[in-house]
């Protein structure tokens, strides 16, 4: 009866207890940081002796924080657009094509996802130093694109596999050109896959830190690199303020995803 919740007896209490404890373990640090970002203690004493907004003021007054956030955002947006477009084209080729080595090709496209990021970071760093792309926006975009593309291909391919191609063929029979049929019939039908591809690509780039540490230059750094560099020096509450804003963004993204999923379902 171990898989029947109501007939577990006292084991139920144990399972619930462990689950609640784990949930608290996952949630509390996030709430803790959010609370500390409003605390007045420089040394992050908890509970804080008083409440203040000064860490946010400090954060917003420092142009380097804003600049790095803006850099991150620009890179993430460009990566998202390129990754979705490239993922779309590639997924059509991979799911519709019947050519030799298709599975091997699929596996190759997914490898950047499973490879240790630090290896890619070091390799790209060496390569970009040679061809002069280090510390440039192009360098950031290219390296994040390599990391984001697998997620895009996975999301779009799986949506495309679930789509009945005969509907697209019907549109062609009714007089649409093959391209027109793909754009006006297939694309709307796989929009949920495209949407997840966009979200994953954005998050991959926006949160990426290891490659970015190597890619960045004194004049061009992303937000995670700025946090990283600050943390290596001290545990200033300004990072708590920055983290809280990032957490807020995550919650916002999750809400958008939930709303759009609901919209797509109905």
């Amino acid at each position: 009866m171990l898989l029947n919740f109501d007939r577990l007896g006292w084991w139920k209490l144990v399972l619930i207890g462990i689950t609640l404890a784990t949930t608290a373990f996952l949630l509390l640090p996030i709430l803790f940081i959010a609370a500390l970002s409003f605390g007045s203690s420089q040394w992050l004493i908890f509970p804080p002796p008083g409440w203040t907004l000064k860490w946010y003021q400090e954060l917003l007054a420092d142009p380097r924080w804003l600049q790095s956030a803006w850099t991150s955002f620009r890179i993430a947006i460009i990566v998202t657009v390129l990754s979705v477009l490239l993922g779309l084209v590639t997924s059509f080729g991979l799911t519709r094509g019947r050519f030799p080595f298709r599975e091997a090709l699929k596996a190759l496209f997914l490898t950047p996802m499973i490879l240790p990021v630090v290896v890619l970071a070091v390799a790209l760093y060496a390569f970009f130093l040679q061809i002069g792309l280090n510390g440039t926006l192009t360098g950031f975009v290219l390296s994040h694109l390599v990391l984001a593309l697998p997620f895009s291909i996975l999301s779009i391919s799986s949506a495309l596999e679930g789509f009945d191609k005969s509907i697209e063929d019907a549109a062609v029979l009714c007089g649409a050109s093959p391209l027109e049929a793909r754009i006006r019939v297939t694309l709307p039908a796989i929009s949920h896959g495209i949407f997840s591809a966009a979200i994953f690509s954005f998050l991959t780039s926006w949160d990426e830190v290891v490659v970015a540490i190597f890619m960045s230059s004194p004049t061009l750094q992303t937000l995670p690199v700025k946090i990283w560099a600050t943390l290596r020096q001290d545990l200033t509450p300004v990072v708590a303020a920055a983290s809280t804003l990032l957490i807020l963004l995550t919650v916002l993204l999750m809400l958008i995803v939930a709303v759009i999923r609901k919209g797509l379902k109905s």
């Binding site: 084209v89 590639t90 519709r96 094509g97 496209f109 490898t111 890619l120 390569f127 290219l142 390296s143």
Partner: peptide
């Protein structure tokens, strides 16, 4: 029953990975 365009569609991504993934790792 290969439509010649299907494989071609994977070429841009293949080029990206060859140039900015396989090549740098191999060089390292």
């Amino acid at each position: 029953a290969r439509r010649p365009t299907d494989f071609d569609l994977t070429l841009p991504a293949l080029g990206l990975l060859a140039l900015f993934f396989v090549l740098p790792v191999a060089m390292l």
